[in-house]
Nucleic acid binder design. Structure first.
Lengths: 232, 232
DNA sequence: CGATTAATTGACAAAACTCAATACGAGTGG
DNA sequence: CCACTCGTATTGAGTTTTGTCAATTAATCG
């Protein structure tokens, strides 16, 4: 997948005007990369907060980001993880209803929402892509609802591993940038249940965990079967 | 809320061309009402199926619709309920990933997706509204994820009742068009848990149920508190 | 009024959660 | 290079919530 580096990207102001001419039917990601300014975020840093005005649209250049909502009593739901190449910040019209934090040290490209909208007004293809991305996020959210509503712990973990594998161009293993607590809050489980379920899958020979955040698939078919009948 | 009747709506072919001129900055709902054709669906009838090409965009005129996904083993997740005035069918780009069924006898207005898109190309305001509606659906889906991920049965039921009340212009009561099974599949619970939880709320004096599908709020503040810290 | 579907209730089982203790691992300083 | 520390992850024991299966009651429709 895309692995943007700020060094290889022309600086914003220089490229701005020219870019828009060059990309009349531009890929959204390209345009964001060219129009946007790159920012670094440390592990745990907040990219935007709940109730903050939604002024920018974002793209992960490197690292990983979580979209989360925290409750008064400490419960937390993670709505999505964003990996390099992913665009986010589309889920708000006026203000954000979730916050976004950097899971590890990350680089994120920011574009003014107003600039993208202005571009979309002129370029129908751009409008179509912005809408399409939003529909894509909606489908992911629906797919996630499915998982949260009716899957047991093992099915959730299996679905999660397959999802992450599908989003990395992985051989037969996944590198997890997020903690067990993040996974738990994404899947609607406790950290203990996540841990036990992973251990059980390892005992069953389905996966191996050389280190806790690197998971090797020994029997991808078995994982597939746990997902049976559901979209990823 | 809107309570469209097919009789009061000009027939499609007659009004089509004129309509578009009349509504240069039209409300999306208005335009759909004027451009669309009205169809009746019996209770339980399928409006569109999973994997079907997404050819239309829909608006509920009367009745109620559920968006659902069925598994091989019989588990079902309901992703959303649509009530009069609600627009749906935006969650797909090419093909539907959920099916939609009429919960009771309903009337639904259909518009060719291509016609709306063509309109959006000409009218930026229309494009903005289509995108905005999609974002709205995404926010609802995220809010629903939250509920499914971390709420207990009582909190889910309370959230559901408040949501439905908010969507009907209701005094202190809700009329539920859907069965207990539909509610259960929406909330990620079993029908028995839904039933028991409602009974418990009635015992506690929070609600009354003169009949099973009509729920009166005796203590809305108590319901509110069960929702504490969460968006509806 | 009887038949059929929808909803409730009860008794028990299972899955996941809670609380507490222990182990692992990365980073730091001796 | 090793020992120490702190955050992260795993494991265990016991509890709670929700699910399952079965029976009963209520509502709806001819």
């Amino acid at each position: 997948m895309l692995q943007w580096r700020s060094e290889t990207r022309p600086s914003r102001n220089a490229a701005f005007a020219a870019t828009l001419q060059d990309a009349p039917t531009g890929q959204l990601a390209e345009v964001i990369g060219l129009m946007g300014a790159c920012m670094k975020f440390d592990r745990g840093a907040e990219i935007f907060a709940e109730d903050e005005a939604a002024e920018y649209i974002y793209m992960v250049a490197s690292g990983a980001v979580r979209l989360s909502k925290l409750l008064s009593d400490g419960r937390r739901q993670i709505g999505a993880f964003y990996l390099p190449g992913d665009i986010f910040g589309l889920e708000a019209e006026e203000t954000h209803s979730f916050s976004a934090e950097s899971i590890c040290d990350s680089q994120v490209v920011l574009v003014k929402r107003s600039a993208l909208v202005a571009e979309a007004v002129r370029d129908g293809e751009m409008a179509r892509q912005l809408w399409g991305k939003t529909v894509g996020h909606l489908q992911r959210a629906q797919s996630h609802m499915l998982l949260l509503g009716r899957k047991n712990a093992q099915e959730r973990i299996a679905a999660f591993l397959m999802e992450m594998a599908g989003r990395q161009d992985s051989d037969g293993s996944v590198e997890l940038p997020m903690s067990r607590q993040d996974i738990a809050d994404y899947l609607g489980l406790t950290i203990e249940t996540v841990s036990r379920t992973l251990t059980q899958l390892e005992r069953d020979g389905v996966i191996s965990m050389p280190i806790s955040r690197h998971i090797v698939f020994n029997d991808a078919a078995a994982l597939d079967k746990m997902n049976d009948g559901w979209a990823a």
